[in-house]
Design a protein around this nucleic acid. Structure first.
Length: 870
RNA sequence: UGGGGCGUAGCUCAGAUGGUUAGAGUGCUUGCUUGACAUGCAAGAGGUCGCCGGUUCAAUUCCGGCCGUCCCAACCA
């Protein structure tokens, strides 16, 4: 005790030591306890390629706050961490690294490639988790999982086979999104649309019979090579008589028909559209309806195929230039205009996606989407804030089949085997000895892997041991809260929902807490290319993890984006320092012996006031946390600690601490401080632990101490109200002194005329201390000369300041104050004279207005009295 | 084109099942080395709560429209 603390809080040393202390105590580990209720969060697994960024910092701060809160409340809390193999992103990194050595995937082969990938995972996979530790994340590291570990892989196969057998997974030739850079298919959700400046080329396609031409417009002339028709609207008068006629495709010479299809908008362009079934999703559909040939003209890396000698090998943009030039030369180009349009790009590499017909594996979505929609409609799972349910519904209601196969090596290999003989597909956990259809031994596994999100979709149960019937699964599933950003709803939340329902028969979580993005100070998305990202680790280094967490939790309302303003972290750091110094002050005043708990009979008005305030704080913070209003909870704590506890109570406490009667005040200081630390602990875990350990305490760690509960014996509502009259007087006196430029050192006698004489008499020491009064005297009536007067709601206060009193200024000030009061009174009386108000407003509101009017009338009377004396 | 968010103090943002003197941080002004903290203390200035209507006794808060801004989705080749 009486421990010497440094003048400023140094987070660095404390954080490292404290985190180690927690891990040693095994406090993060969830031990199944049937007597307790479970509270579970599965962490959105960060990519193994990733570095901790502000998005992670926010996401994990919110989760840790919830977890620490529930743990202290007595739940058996499990926060399950892990990482994602991120097939496409990781594979890209490894390919990139290999390229530096002059190697390619093909040159080293699948096996060697995977070996490198696993090495890479070993080397970097732990980086992000060690960074999460720096944030103070209290996750159960003993249960850490990886989407490609044995258990998760088993779950993936199980689900694949399961869905396949139910007919919900199929293989088919479809139009998919293809990334020519990553050389793989990607799902609809992985395409990002981006507005691009392009051209609109007007072309003429001549009729075969030589009777002129039809004019059409395109943004992608290079796909002309694959045109197999031109479509017009069936009702378009301009073209009605041309339907069925044949055209000669320029440059190629192919004969193609004019077909009628309602897909064509007669209002747009020329009302005639060239149809390239192999390279446009809409054209593909048109092609199906009219039984048109599908001619692929682009290779996987978006180059013209060998079928078109002149252009073969050109990439799509080069081919575009060449074809436009040739069209122009051939007299087929009528016009070129500027055109902005949305172009789909790969969310990983930004390359323009090429729609492509290809054989892929798909999940049939309609049967899975229905129950997932229903689960949210019926309230089994709720979104916070609720409006995100709309986004969720919209995605699921308009969903198309999910393309799950990827032409990548790093990932879960599709458990499908093809027979060389009969060509049948066998789907199985392990490679079968022979083909079950024909007995042939020549089976080869599908070379493709699954979309990364296929395994993420199983995360809430695969990590708990499924498909085995584990104790963890029985106890912790369904989990409770899922915390993630709104941008992940279509990728992940939705897919976990239908997977959980389908495989487990139960939704994976009851609440989805959605947060927004952390943007830079100008409101731009943080991105590598802009170089505007703020590194959380650097901020922790500078200001401490608690300060960063506090910043992210404060003023961030669910679902809304926030800007990262460096000054705010500084303010949070200052708050940490404030707490540190409050603790330091208390410790300085503690003797060797721990103070005994306070005796209720000995409590003075300010003690009852602070205890009452503290009790409200417990209610407010708990209530806000339960409603996921983390920002409001932490704001309450800030206000209480700084404005109420430090600025008022500690200052008042000094009166007794420097006297002989210090036992009660010491006990109250310790009580309020250490319990407030508990309430703050979920937000600022490190500093609260450090201080709590220094203060008298029972138990090993604040993080496993009991959460505060509202306590009737702390509720001194009346006494607190009385004490606030004193505070009002103190504020008023300070205000007047400042206004009159009275030097702080100059103490003055204070005379008070009030209906609350006892209250003011009992607390005169407080007024003396906080309002620089040399003495406080309660008087019956005012006969003091040359005094400034102050009128509060509860009292008339006089301070004789001799020559400092400027009578004219006094009159002006009082008049001004009188006007303000008059105006307010008029407003209030207006309401009270309104019949509608009196008959319809609730009684409580009417009473409140009446009380306000009374107070104002009293105040006016007091002011009048003062003015009359001048 | 459809859906949604946001628009509150110079700046960044909270907030209210409709009734408050509309808040915080930061910035600004003034004064303070008051025995925890200048990463501090005290006092102060600063807002027609985007615009127009509606509902209501009462709207900054609820509803509708508009303007500005951002996002999501769809898309016309």
């Amino acid at each position: 005790m009486a421990k010497e603390l440094a003048k400023t809080y140094d987070p660095k040393e404390v954080e490292e030591r404290t985190y180690a202390f927690w891990e040693q105590g095994n406090y993060f580990h969830a031990e199944i306890d049937p007597k307790k209720k479970p509270y579970t969060i599965v962490m959105p697994p960060p990519n193994i390629t990733g570095q901790l960024h502000m998005g992670h910092a926010l996401d994990n701060t919110l989760q840790d706050i919830l977890i620490r809160f529930r743990r202290m409340q007595g739940y058996c809390t499990l926060w399950l961490p892990g990482t994602d193999h991120a097939s496409i992103a990781t594979e890209a990194k490894i390919v990139e690294a290999m390229a530096k050595e002059g190697l390619t995937k093909e040159s080293i082969g699948r096996e060697e490639f995977l070996k490198r990938a696993w090495d890479w995972k070993k080397q970097y996979g732990g980086r992000i988790t060690s960074q999460l530790r720096k944030m103070g994340s209290s996750c159960d590291w003993q249960r850490e999982r990886f989407t490609m570990d044995e258990g998760c892989s088993k779950a993936v196969k199980e689900v694949f086979i399961n869905l396949y057998q139910k007919g919900l997974i199929y293989r088919g030739e479809r139009m998919i999104n293809w990334c020519p850079h990553c050389l793989t298919s990607i799902s609809d959700a992985e395409v990002e649309y981006e507005e691009q400046q392009g051209k609109f080329w007007h072309l003429k396609y001549p009729f075969k019979d030589g009777s002129g031409y039809i004019e059409l417009a395109t943004t992608r002339p290079e796909t002309l090579l694959g045109d197999t028709a031109v479509a017009v609207h069936p009702d378009d008068e301009r073209y009605k008589n041309m339907i069925g006629k044949m055209l000669i495709l320029p440059l190629v010479g192919r004969e193609i028909p004019i077909v009628a299809d309602t897909y064509v908008d007669p209002e747009f362009g020329t009302g005639a559209v060239k149809i390239t079934p192999a390279h446009d999703p809409n054209d593909f559909e048109v092609g199906l309806r009219h039984d048109l040939p599908v001619i692929t003209v682009l290779t996987e890396d978006a180059k013209i195929t060998q079928d078109y000698e002149k252009y073969a090998g050109m990439d799509r943009y080069e081919a575009r230039r060449a074809i436009v030039a040739d069209l122009e030369a051939g007299g087929y180009l009528l016009e070129t205009e500027d055109h902005t349009h949305n172009v789909g790009t790969c969310y990983r590499c930004g390359t323009t996606v090429e729609p492509r017909v290809s054989k892929q594996w798909f999940v049939k979505m309609k049967p899975l989407a229905g129950p997932a929609i229903e689960a949210v409609k019926s309230g089994q799972t709720k979104f916070v804030p609720e409006r995100f349910e709309k986004i969720y519904f919209h995605w699921l209601e308009n969903i198309r089949d999910w393309c799950i196969s990827r032409q990548l090596w790093w990932g879960h290999r599709i458990p499908a085997y093809y027979c060389a003989d009969c060509g049948e597909i066998t789907v199985a956990v392990d490679q079968p000895e022979s083909c079950p259809h024909c007995g042939c031994k020549q089976l080869t596994q599908d070379p493709d892997t699954l979309d990364t999100w296929f395994s993420s979709a199983l995360w809430p149960f695969s990590t708990l041991g499924w498909p085995d019937k584990t104790e963890d699964l029985a106890y912790f599933y369904p989990t409770n809260t899922l915390v993630t950003g709104y941008d992940i709803i279509p990728f992940w939340v939705m897919r976990m929902m239908f997977s959980g329902i389908e495989q487990m028969g139960q939704v994976p979580f009851d609440t989805v807490l959605i947060h927004g993005l952390v943007r830079d100070a100008q409101g731009r998305k943080m991105s590598k290319s802009l170089g505007n990202g703020v590194d959380p680790l650097e901020e922790i280094e500078k200001y401490g993890a608690d300060a960063l967490r506090f910043t992210l939790a404060t003023g961030n309302s669910p679902g809304n984006d926030m800007r990262y303003i460096p000054e705010r972290v500084e303010a949070s750091r200052n708050f940490a320092n404030k707490i540190w110094n409050a603790a330091r002050f208390i410790l300085m005043n503690l003797s060797e012996d721990e103070p005994a708990p306070y005796v209720p009979e000995n409590l003075l008005p300010p003690d009852k006031w602070i205890l009452s305030k503290f009790n409200s704080l417990v209610e407010d913070v708990t209530d806000h946390l339960e409603k996921f209003e983390l920002g409001l909870a932490v704001q309450k704590l800030y206000d209480f600690i700084w404005d109420i506890f430090c600025d008022w109570y500690i200052e008042i406490a000094k009166i007794r601490l420097y006297s002989d009667d210090k036992e009660t005040v010491k006990a109250v200081l310790v009580f309020v401080m250490s319990n407030t630390l508990k309430l703050l602990h979920p937000f600022m875990p490190f500093i609260t632990e450090e201080i709590w350990q220094s203060l008298p305490h029972t138990g090993e760690s604040i993080m496993i101490s009991d959460w505060c509960r509202p306590d009737e014996t702390l509720r001194f509502t009346e006494e607190a109200k009385e004490f606030e009259r004193i505070m009002g007087a103190v504020r008023a006196i300070r205000n007047r002194r400042a206004e009159m430029n009275v030097a702080p050192g100059k103490k003055a006698a204070v005379f008070i005329e009030t209906a609350w004489a006892d209250t003011f008499r009992d607390n005169s020491a407080v007024i003396e201390k906080l309002a620089s009064a040399s003495s406080v005297e309660i008087i019956d009536h005012n006969d003091i000369e040359n005094a400034v007067s102050i009128v509060t709601d509860d009292a008339k206060i006089f301070i004789p300041l001799g020559e400092l009193v400027d009578m004219e200024a006094e009159r002006k000030r009082l008049t001004k104050e009188r006007e303000a009061a008059q105006k307010q009174l008029a407003q209030t009386e207006g309401k009270l004279n309104n019949q509608g108000f009196l008959s319809k407003a609730p009684q409580a509101v009417i009473d409140q207005q009446k009380e306000k009017a009374d107070t104002l009338r009293e105040k006016l009377a007091l002011l009048d009295e003062q003015l009359a004396k001048l």
